[in-house]
Amino acid sequence: MRVLVLAGFLGSGKTTVALQIARAAQAAGQRVALIVNERGEAGVDNQLVARLGFDVRELLGGCICCSLVAELAPALEALAATTRPDLVIVEPSGIAEPAQIRAALRFARVPGLDMRSVSVVDAQRIGELMEVVTPLLTKQMAHADLAVVCKADIASTPQTEAACRIVGEHAPQTDPYVIDAREPLDGALRMALLGRCTRW
C-alpha cells in the first residue's frame, strides 16, 4: 500500500492538495482513500469528499497536540483489510511531523506499506510562520520526500520566491513544486507523486 502523508501547518492548503492528488490518482485508474483530520482544522467537508467518489476516513484525536499518530496505523490496517486502495493520502493535524508518523507506522500490520511525505508550504505565510513555528516547520520540511509551495496564485512573486528559498534551505533533498492547488496538478508533479520514479 502506498501512503502519502501531507505535512504542513494549519491552513497551508493540505486538504486542497490532497484532493488534487486524489483526482489525479483516480484519473490514472488508482483506487484512492483519504484519511483526514477534518474537525481538528477547518477543512473540506468529508461528505463532499465522499461524493467525489473517494473513500474517506476521519481521524479524531482529542486535543490538537495529539497528532493522531496512534490512530493512523489502525486506520491503514482497516483499509488494507477492506477496500485495499492503491494509494492512501493522509492529512494529519497541522502539527504532525513526518518522522513521528514514520516511527508510528513501524508496527502497522499493512503488507507492502510504503510511506512518502509531502511538505505543503503556504507561499503567503511561510515567511512569518518560520519566525514563530520554526522548530515544527523545520522538521516538517527536513523529513519530506517532496515539497509543494501552495497558493502561488494569491501570493506575490517575492513571497513565492522567498518560500522557495526557505524550502531550499530546509529541504535541500527536493526541489519545490510551485502550484495553485485549485488547479489540476501539472505533469511533472503528477509523475513525481504517482508515477514510477526512484524515490517511490
Binding site: 482544522e41 479524531l60 482529542g62 486535543c63
Partner: peptide, 28 residues
C-alpha cells in the same frame, strides 16, 4: 469541562461525532 478550560469548541461522541470515537478539539 474541556471547552471551559481550553476555550475551544469540543466535538463530542454521541452528539457531533459517532458513538465510539474520541472527542475532538475544534481548532478554529
Amino acid at each position: 469541562i474541556l471547552s471551559a478550560l481550553w476555550l475551544s469548541r469540543v466535538a463530542v461522541p454521541g452528539i457531533e461525532l459517532p458513538e465510539d470515537t474520541l472527542w475532538q478539539v475544534m481548532e478554529a
